[in-house]
Design a protein around this nucleic acid. Structure first.
Lengths: 202, 202
DNA sequence: GTCTATACAACGATAGAC
DNA sequence: GTCTATCGTTGTATAGAC
């Protein structure tokens, strides 16, 4: 890679880093393009040499997050035949989601804000929620086929679980003056969703 | 009340109605003050005679919603001694929340959007969530005192349930081309939270 | 109280020099 | 590719006539 391109890549990275930093502080919606260039120490015009909009930059951040090929989310080895009525398997799924949220908080929170800010009439909130919980839905359908009695429609149950994770993750992430033990949270959610409020707890 | 005041009240009401309508269509964040006055058929300047900001108008809408003194939420007769591990009592609580969300969707959704748009650093998301689930928390604490085994810290469990309701309600509310049977949703959530995914279902 | 008109700030986006 | 400078739009808020 030539020096020219290296410089460009440097600026691009600087913009991405600055954006991530600001998204964490002020949130995606409250961060303006001019804020990002300023934070990155670049001129306003330079932004458009790398991205056409704030949303595209967000997609780039998301891409970079996925590119890290988290060992956690090994989609290759993720058969439909998972049984979420099994406590260990349920916990594993919740742990992955929760960990991703915690480790990539700026990006995930930004995506969450972008989703909420969309026009209600667009149906984006529901579509995104269903899309991101597709895996859960499949597992639940599988369990249902095995004769397990579920609380209701797999799509709805999956969406409900996804909603809990997303909103709680966002809230916990914004909490100040309050410490959270991630393992304890995951255990709590696991117990709540596995056996419910009245289920057996030993 | 004089004619003068009546006219003023009329404008105020027109603004509130217009706002509610637009909040439902485009969402709170995408609705501008000028949009509201335009929709209400009033001049921009008139807005500030009644409200100092869009947020204050939202508070007024919220107030009006509470003023209807929903028979549903009879806080007067709402002792701490409710047992959410009892299926019927749990369902009752979920039904109330869900119904309020569905019947006052424009206002509740707007509040949700305002909460999410706040700076993450403000901690508003967590504070609001904890505040709105205070009742649940008290019920859970009571159950714990009665020797029931809960999934975890009452505040966290209450927040998790509140998160699920808020986000799912928002998403369902935005869904297009998808019909929801409110009773079915409430039943599903009740079963999920009462007995969990693996709990007994007859 | 309501209107018209307008000041003012913020922000996105582009042009042109280097 | 990056910069400075600037245009144009949008939206908040106020001034002053009626």
């Amino acid at each position: 890679m030539g020096v020219r391109k290296a410089k460009a890549a440097e600026t691009r990275t600087a913009l991405l880093d600055a954006a991530r930093r600001l998204f964490a502080e002020r949130g995606y919606l409250n961060t303006k393009i001019t804020d990002i260039t300023k934070e990155a120490g670049r001129a306003t015009g330079s932004f458009y040499e790398h991205f056409t909009s704030k949303d595209e930059l967000l997609q780039a951040l998301l891409q970079g997050m996925e590119d890290r090929a988290d060992e956690l989310v090994d989609t290759a080895v993720h058969p439909r035949e998972h049984d979420l009525t099994d406590r260990a398997q349920l916990r594993q799924h919740l742990a992955v989601s929760w960990t991703v949220f915690r480790e990539h908080a700026p990006v995930v929170s930004a995506l969450f804000q972008a989703m909420i800010a969309a026009e209600p009439g667009s149906g984006r909130a529901w579509n995104d929620l269903v899309g991101e919980t597709g895996i859960l839905k499949q597992h639940l359908e599988y369990s249902a086929e095995q004769g397990k009695a579920l609380p209701g429609d797999p799509e709805l149950v999956a969406a409900a679980i996804g909603a809990m994770l997303a909103m709680l993750g966002y809230a916990v992430n914004s909490a100040r003056g309050r410490e959270f033990d991630d393992d304890a949270v995951i255990d709590t959610l696991t117990d709540l969703l596995h056996s419910g409020l009245a289920g057996p707890r030993d």
